[in-house]
Design a protein around this nucleic acid. Structure first.
Lengths: 231, 231, 231, 231
DNA sequence: GATGAATGAGCTTTCATTCAT
DNA sequence: TATGAATGAAAGCTCATTCAT
């Protein structure tokens, strides 16, 4: 029944392209539904392929998901390197980092859900990955360099831990997106609202800068309150 | 495996108890696997009941999940009210709030995953709930009161938005837990480590206090950088 | 917690009444949904009782269904006996029987579904019943008597089989009710329409009377056509 | 149990064949057990397939059932058209229709249960179908043509409603099959007995012909009894 | 007599995955 | 390379039925 011409030599479709379309579709699917909620056939359909192609190109759901995860980390780390923080004065560099992180998470709407969903999965796939741990040290080093230069110049307080600082920056840029739905219900206000996001961007930059540029609170206060807050 | 004391007088057929056991088991299950990953039979087994009891007492997976979610919000909001922030001086009250939030999220290990998973589910259930939006306004009011009293006394900077501040507090206490797995792989360091948590607690309190007690940066800087950070 | 007076001697409820309410509810349920589609809890709720009462009074779903079935046959046979066909002239008696059957099936809307559903169940319960076969012979005898008196008087054709005749009467009164839904869709006309029912009542009586009062077609024709109608 | 010839060349993987086997198996299952009593896994097993194939080819239980129902109506209506009633003299044509209907229902043992079960289901699926109402008008038209030609020729009584007549024909051919089980118990005689069926075939033809060829009863009788039998 | 608690078995449906072409 | 056919495993949910008070 199927009529086929004899010019069947040409590749039906471009393999690399198909692979990429699958990867993109998978990112969208997993960001929307997480690992266990993600459906292979939806990915296939969205990619204009069929399920078996996914198995051919990626091996299975696990491998596909891992590919998406590593791609996600690879992208942001590459752009961060392009910030070239070492070439900027400390205050300026720090602001660049915060603003970049804030903007990247807003503009790349898949990032937050993908990371969040990987944590739902218990980091099962991140642990298996080599990309994730290997691309982080350069980032930490860049932050450390900023903090040390800032500290030496008297612009920043001394003794700030780069890891703590990065977690804080990420937290401030991440949570209103990762928890957008619950927070929107709580506050009865859409946190995706551009107005609100612009306001938050200023707030976040200010929080980080205030912390870094203010002298530390007097030590006596520090420990006085370090106790379980609840009786 | 089943440890049975000889005080087996406790009634096996106690509806309220069974219901509670199911709710507890469901909280554990949904916190570990999310809504779509959560399994009814695992919940039943963990509760020492069987699946049909869940349907009897809760109606279905949706309703059970919603019960868990509302219970989760109900608990933390109730404890927050007990902080009695209005009775404390502003700086002290704010510290209490931050420390309480930090500690509660650490000590109630289900809270973060439950909230995170609800966001994975797109806030589908939170939107359906009356508990979630109704219990938030008192919290916002308490924060607003602290900020206004602090501002009037010159202890806090002026014009801080209560909602932004709460999102910041939550973010600083939430992300190292919600993203613990990926961050632990990134930094090759377990963020559940008590040492690290203690360090972070001090850091978080300091970040919030530094922000509130420092005069705002000069306005000129504010807008100069308000632009897409990426070319 | 439960406050009970000391006049607790009086029977909580009337057993016979409860039993009857269950039976009525079951008739409604089984007539609507058949045996396998019938739900015990719906019956209990409709009877204002609970499921366990059904087990107490009837034993189980099977026994309850059988009770409904026997009750159904018992009612119509009892009313047929009251027609007292032996006391009427043949044509009149036959007309009474047809009209009674037609009207009874219309007015007792549960009859047709119950009988139909029992046939869906393969007559499984009717076979187990003593009521069903035992109440039929008097009916056959009454019809036989009408036919013989009519034949002797020349009013009816001779040699009519009472069983064939009863099946015909039942068929003519039964099918537009038992097949009401499919026929209504086929003809795009509601066969429950009172107008249509009145028209059918006249038609049915006429068909039966015409058959009985007309001399038989010439025998030669009879066998000529007894062949598979399709080539 | 499985009889396999040595001509096992037939492709196991033939979609159309599998689909057909499923449809046939479903017809058998639904005719035996009705919609709600019908079991998907029994159908799959009977079709030599597995349950998922049913979902693949038909979508679900509802759709499968509807396919069976429409197929059932499609078949009989197609054969009725082949009777070519317009080409026969009225009496002959009518006899052909009655005999065809009688024989088809006997020989296609699934037809009666399928239709009966659809009525148990309240015509839920027939209402959703386009096949059922669309294939009926030609049949009505053919009957109308016979009646008019017969009336004009003086062979048939005048003013017979085609719809009433068809319902009567169907009823006379349907009820001893649809109610076979209860009637067999009532009369303590198997109505599936070929002897009895042959006798009924003659009876049914005679009833219809007698009605059509006999002049209507005198009007006085008609209305005298036309009253609501019950107040 | 009446009722809440509990259960075993089964049903429809879905999903990731593999086979054969 | 690409695709239709087929399947094992499980998930959510329901139902008739029994236990214990």
């Amino acid at each position: 029944m199927k009529e086929r011409g004899d010019d069947e030599k040409a590749p039906r479709r471009d393999a690399a392209l198909t692979r990429q379309r699958i990867l993109d579709a998978a990112r969208g699917e997993f960001s929307l539904h997480g690992y266990s909620g993600g459906r292979m056939d939806r990915i296939a359909r969205a990619a204009g392929a069929n399920v078996q192609m996914i198995y051919r190109y990626f091996g299975g759901k696990d491998d596909l998901y891992l590919a998406v995860l590593e791609d996600t980390y690879g992208r942001i780390r590459a752009l961060e390197r392009q910030l070239d923080l070492a070439a900027h004065p400390p205050v300026d560099g720090m602001r660049r980092l915060v603003e970049f992180t804030f903007d990247y998470l807003v503009e790349n709407a898949d990032f937050v859900p993908i990371i969040r969903n990987e944590n739902v999965a218990g980091g099962r796939f991140a642990k298996r990955s080599k990309v994730v741990p290997n691309t982080t040290p350069p980032l930490v080093a860049a932050i450390k360099d900023l903090l040390e230069r800032g500290g030496a110049a008297g612009a920043f307080r001394a003794g700030v831990d780069p890891m703590q600082l990065y977690v804080t920056v990420l937290a401030l840029c991440f949570t209103h997106l990762s928890n957008r739905h619950t927070l929107s219900v709580m506050f009865q206000h859409d946190l995706g609202d551009p107005e609100w996001l612009a306001q938050r961007r200023r707030h976040v930059v200010e929080v980080v800068c205030a912390y870094l540029t203010k002298g530390p609170s007097e030590g006596r206060d520090q420990e006085r309150h370090h106790q379980p807050a609840l009786p």
